[in-house]
Design a protein around this nucleic acid. Structure first.
Lengths: 157, 157
DNA sequence: TTTAAATAAATGTCGTTACATTAAATACAG
DNA sequence: CTGTATTTAATGTAACGACATTTATTTAAA
């Protein structure tokens, strides 16, 4: 369904760019709603899930709260409080960073890893909700989104 | 800059779909941050701006709160309270709908229309932040996003 | 008509977000 | 070293979001 129908818009967009801006926001909301619905039974928000995956990416190396923030999809989130939430569920461990006592090292626990494994198997989070596109189309959109944001393309895969 | 660098990801995505999912969310956040920054001087949130544009689209016909909700990019917003905010700034007027006393008609004021005109001139909101893409590419991404969401394509412009 | 169901908007709530501030530790200039 | 600036995380806050409930009105049924 074209974006115009989704938002019941009866006047045309002023430009392909404006249409794309609305379409992007709308599609991201759509995707995020899907994610929320799927994660709810696990008592995880999309952002908590994001933090867990970041921690798994580094496992078994712990990383600091700051490093988590830099890697998050939503940079505005308060990683400190997200870690609090995950700590309460015993999905992560927190320990003082040996080299810098300001920093706090965070490490995903076995429980956290196991939970992630279960979630990984959900088709919705393997990107299945995007399977209306072919792999080639998915790659194409990703490349165009990169181009959209990127000031300059620096030779790169 | 490819999404992997933006989120400092050092392990590859499991599939083009997963990469696209992250890329979509990341790009939408990027866009929404841009919008917020631009709208802040006008004391408008992106959603309030969205409501104002919807109202302008119908002007001079008033539309109900429910109709606003259906047209919003973020369907989860509380249109009722958004209208409250806009009312406090005298950007909209609220009046009882003549045919249905449950419903409330909302109409953008002259002040609101003038404000929108000023904002329209901002390059960032004319989609300029998306000008790294050509018009053709913007159309291409829009079409693919429609395809991504849409269960079925029903013949349509 | 009287009552029950459905609908539109407003409101209550609790958790989260955005953003500023604080507290603690480190870096670094003199 | 000493003091100042910077960095890292945590915390305070006001507003916002998601979601349930309430109120008022309309629709439809008995």
């Amino acid at each position: 369904m074209p974006i115009e129908s989704d938002i019941k818009q009866n006047i045309p967009f002023k430009s392909p760019y404006q249409r794309l801006a609305v379409n992007l926001m709308y599609t991201a909301n759509w995707l995020s709603d899907n994610q929320m619905r799927v994660l709810r039974p696990f008592c995880l928000t999309p952002q908590q899930y994001n933090v867990l995956r970041i921690l798994r990416g580094q496992y078994p190396t712990p990383i600091t709260v700051l490093a988590i923030t830099e890697r998050m999809v939503d940079k505005m989130s308060n990683a400190s409080r997200l870690v609090d939430k995950l700590l309460a569920k015993e999905l992560v461990k927190r320990s003082e960073c040996p080299h810098d006592r300001r920093a706090v090292d965070v490490l995903i626990t076995e429980v956290g890893l196991t939970l992630l494994t279960r979630i990984d198997e959900l088709p919705e989070l393997r990107g299945e909700s995007l399977h209306n596109l072919t792999e080639a189309e998915a790659n194409q959109v990703s490349a165009l989104l990169d181009k959209l944001r990127g000031s300059e393309q620096i030779g790169n895969e």
